[in-house]
């Protein structure tokens, strides 16, 4: 039987106890063993709690919800905590920000400018330059934040505990070091829509082995690179280092991976290079 893809709607039905036993068993097993499914379940559960608090559940769903989430004192306390966080945030959002002072400053400035039109052009130029600089700065901040979020996600996916898990919707590829591939073409991967993770197996062909490794992933033609630290060697085969990449960071193009061992004094060994092409 073909398994249904895991969507928010499916998880919602699961949490409300509307699925058949075999489907429940499949999702429960994933919930136990796959960190990403566990987190998705928690997010959908949170949406459900919000809908309950907003009176947005049907009569039947409300009964199902109460049966599962509001029977014990602890469950009721959790609901109230969520409610208090939500109420506080909604109240903060409604509270007008202290903008009055800046408006009156602006009015005073305008009044002065009316008296001294000679200042209008230089001030407008300064404001324009400041705006451009602010936009550039803001873009840099957004990019940095995005970069940091991806590196955090990579660290999570490649932690020793996560690497022991076998998540669903993952495909694996064996890569060979560029130095050992001679004239073979660069391996390519075209990931399908339902795939969330790509696992790459990187053979370590050097004589020296290390307890941990570091990988730097970069896309050719792009200055951005992502570093994954503290990668263990594969517990089954010490000559292979596995790395996991979320599909959403892989865009069409050629990628390089530089894998280095981390020595006892914390320095990096000379790197081994691997490459692959994404053609989705």
């Amino acid at each position: 039987m073909k398994e249904e893809p895991i969507t928010d709607a499916l998880l919602r039905e699961f949490l409300l106890g509307k699925l058949a036993d075999d489907e429940c068993e499949r999702l429960e097993t994933l919930f136990l063993t796959d960190f990403q499914t566990k987190e998705r379940v928690a997010v959908v559960e949170q949406d459900l709690i919000e809908d309950y608090l907003e009176n947005g559940l049907t009569k039947e769903d409300r009964k199902r919800f109460l049966l599962r989430y509001a029977q014990t004192d602890e469950e009721q306390r959790k609901l109230r905590i969520t409610e208090s966080i939500r109420d506080w945030a909604a109240m903060e959002a409604r509270t007008p920000q202290p903008a009055a002072a800046s408006v009156s400053d602006w009015d005073r400035l305008r009044a002065r400018l009316r008296l001294n039109p000679i200042f209008v052009v230089p001030i407008a130029a300064i404001v324009l330059i400041a705006t451009v600089l602010a936009i550039v700065w803001l873009n840099t901040q957004i990019e940095q934040r995005k970069h940091l979020a991806i590196e955090q996600e990579l660290a999570q996916l490649n932690s020793p505990m996560s690497l022991r898990e076998s998540p669903s919707q993952m495909i694996s590829f064996d890569l060979r070091p560029v130095t050992a591939r001679s004239v073979e073409p660069t391996p390519g991967l075209s990931s399908r829509a339902e795939i969330r993770l790509v696992e790459l197996h990187l053979p370590w062909i050097r004589r020296e082995h290390y307890s941990i490794y570091q990988a730097e992933v970069r896309r050719i033609g792009n200055n951005e690179s992502f570093t994954i630290r503290n990668l263990p060697a594969d517990s089954g085969d010490q000559n292979v280092i596995r790395i996991r990449l979320p599909k959403h960071i892989l865009i069409r193009g050629q990628y390089q991976i530089y894998l280095s061992g981390i020595t006892n004094n914390g320095s990096l060994s000379s790197p081994e290079e691997y490459s692959f092409v994404v053609s989705n």
């Binding site: 699961f14 949490l15 106890g17 429940c24 429960e28 919930f31 136990l32 566990k38 049966l67 599962r68």
Partner: peptide, 13 residues
């Protein structure tokens, strides 16, 4: 695991 199993039991009513 304890936490997750307790959740599963709860979901199963």
């Amino acid at each position: 695991l304890r936490h997750d199993l307790a959740k599963i039991f709860k979901w199963r009513g």
